[in-house]
Design a protein around this nucleic acid. Structure first.
Lengths: 198, 198
DNA sequence: AAAAAATGAGCGCCTACTCACTCATTAACA
DNA sequence: TGTTAATGAGTGAGTAGGCGCTCATTTTTT
């Protein structure tokens, strides 16, 4: 009956937010977001009730996008090193091709402007990926390896690798390989240490 | 001749800032800092000319404190695994006993409210520690291992380990050991991948 | 007495968000 | 098929409140 909401405007606001949060953090004003999106400030609030809602929606969308990419095409299927490396390559490739998204995601994950409930909800988007990760990791790090801990380590090493690639883009493939070697070696180290009741 | 500046007030302001930045980020207002420090808002500006100056001083102080602790007492001296583990244990112990400082340091390091020049200056406080780290690492990761990359990885795994300990404080020693095993294993992985021109 | 620390009301500016309004879109009716 | 009524997207000046910071004044020290 009335003017339909425009998907274009919504994504323009989202994209403007990605750019500004990457550059200046979650403290960026809604006025700047609106300006960059080419939209009146009021329009931001017709698509997102509050700034918190905007940042929350963005966090969930970015995590969803990354989770989808991790699961996109089929794994080699060795349920070990090769599967894991495939995973790793996708993670790094996404970060390298989407540096501002990566940066924004990193900031949103620790922002106090996103409620904990959203952060919890976002983590759940990686549940499916975590299952695959657990299977591929079982032999390298032990059946009872704490998958959450391994996931955090993977993310941490990916972050370091990604920064290194940003500094030396021409060494991308070597650094990607090297980052994986560090992660895989780390998981081997993990298996050699005593069991744990978590 | 006149009233002397009070070191107590200065540290009260610093400590209040540590607590508030850890909890709410660098967006915390000077009014809140003053209130928590038990001081008038104007007093904050007699000790630090601007909020940026306050955050910068805090970053440098925290990095200095951590760097000092890393170098405090002598290393075992094997110039290998044991030296490295000694280093690691000090890093984790500091993070575990000073969680709000750790959190604040992490936030200040990526805050756009701290100028890059300060961040660069802060990194230099770890130069001495980096030399020791490089020596201890040479055999495990190769003579030409990129020390900056290794440092970032160590920091990243420390962060993950620290979070794990925060969740399971009674497993502190086991997790500390495990975190080091991951790091050391990772460095072994590093040595097995092709050379790099950085 | 002299000097500097300490104070907090006040300054101009920026913030997230609102609201009275315009206008594009479409369903319903002549 | 052409006209109209209903709807809600889109707008941007306006609002209250919070921000970093200042400064006239008071308090504390030498």
């Amino acid at each position: 009956m009335a003017r339909p909401a425009s998907e274009e405007k919504r994504t323009a606001i989202m994209n403007a937010t990605i750019g500004l949060v990457a550059a200046a953090g979650t403290g960026t004003s809604t006025a700047k977001i609106a300006k960059k999106a080419g939209v009146a400030e009021g329009t931001v609030f017709t698509y997102f009730s509050t700034k918190e809602a905007l940042l929350s929606a963005l966090l969930l969308e970015l995590e969803g996008e990354l989770a989808d990419i991790l699961l996109k095409d089929p794994l080699p299927g060795d349920e070990g090193r090769e599967d894991m490396q495939h995973f790793w390559n996708r993670l790094i490739d996404w970060g390298v091709t989407n540096p501002t998204k990566w940066r924004t995601l990193k900031r949103l994950k620790i922002s106090s402007q996103v409620p904990d409930s959203i952060r919890t909800q976002g983590e759940r988007r990686f549940d499916e990926a975590a299952v695959v990760l657990a299977r591929a990791l079982a032999r390298q790090a032990g059946e009872d390896a704490n998958i959450r801990y391994a996931g955090i380590i993977m993310n941490a090493i990916a972050e370091a690798t990604f920064d290194a690639i940003a500094d030396n883009p021409n060494q991308r493939e070597t650094l990607k390989l090297r980052g994986f070697a560090v992660f895989w070696g780390g998981m081997a180290g993990l298996s050699q240490e005593g069991s744990l009741t978590l």
